[in-house]
Design a protein around this nucleic acid. Sequence first.
DNA 1: ATGAGTGCAAATAGTTTGCAAGCTG
DNA 2: CAGCTTGCAAACTATTTGCACTCAT
Lengths: 152, 152
Amino acid sequence: MKRDNGFLKRILYTIESSPLRMTQKRERLLDALVASDRPISAAVLRDKAGLPDSDLVTVYRTLEAFERVGIIQRIPLEESGCLFEVTEPEDHHHHFVCRECHRTERLDFCLGKELEERAKKLGFTEVTHLMEVYGLCEDCQPVHESVDCVGG
Amino acid sequence: MKRDNGFLKRILYTIESSPLRMTQKRERLLDALVASDRPISAAVLRDKAGLPDSDLVTVYRTLEAFERVGIIQRIPLEESGCLFEVTEPEDHHHHFVCRECHRTERLDFCLGKELEERAKKLGFTEVTHLMEVYGLCEDCQPVHESVDCVGG
DNA sequence: ATGAGTGCAAATAGTTTGCAAGCTG
DNA sequence: CAGCTTGCAAACTATTTGCACTCAT
């Protein structure tokens, strides 16, 4: 599940086994996604891929295409928008997300099974679930004048 | 936690103890929220409150005001938009949501404590979390020609 | 009478869609 | 050369904001 040597190879294989076509832009977008150590927005992805002149539409469509073949996970933000992350299809997980700088940490903890079981008992099918934890990361916490530190 | 006799009374008390003002519109909106057996959108709320001529802005502002005093819970939908529900502040819970008709079922199961603890260990503060389960409810499932029913 | 609530109009933001042209396998 | 991909422009949708006016306490 880690991004070992085989990671990119398996991702590429997934794409090649699909009707998707690999263009130069998509290659760059994919590289940037794989290189990124954290989920990023469509706009940031475009920058990191070195494609500042490509239309954002292209980025969105590429992400949508990649998502269709199961190699993209979407992380909704608290307010609006979302972040994207390449993952292998089986590597389902959730995140801690800083609501300020959007830094994320992986959350290897999931109730998918449990939740889907309950949902099915209620008559729901095609069950998916959402679970994200939001907060302020260390770097984004407001700096106080050490109010509670008597010694100053 | 149920909507017993005291429910509305406690909700009203919360509002009265706040700087919020109770207008006729807000009264109607609150009544409609309390009367609704499920979370609803701002537009549906306006209808149910019998205020088709009120501006949606008013509905949103009222919901925002109610949310500030802790009596509204927001349920994000999978695609876009969200539903609103009156709840007492302590009554935190999650939902099963039909992605088709937006029917919701209560999910009395929450990992808030666990998640927030983990988040804090990672240095996050002001932690909140999101957890919703989406699927197709019984009424919204596509009708197949009983494909897997040999007997036809 | 002070500050909260309301309506109108317009903006926002992120994402999506239509269509014509360009490229990949 | 079929059909996937791209760009441009425009739409979309749910929600938010500014401002002037009205109303509750």
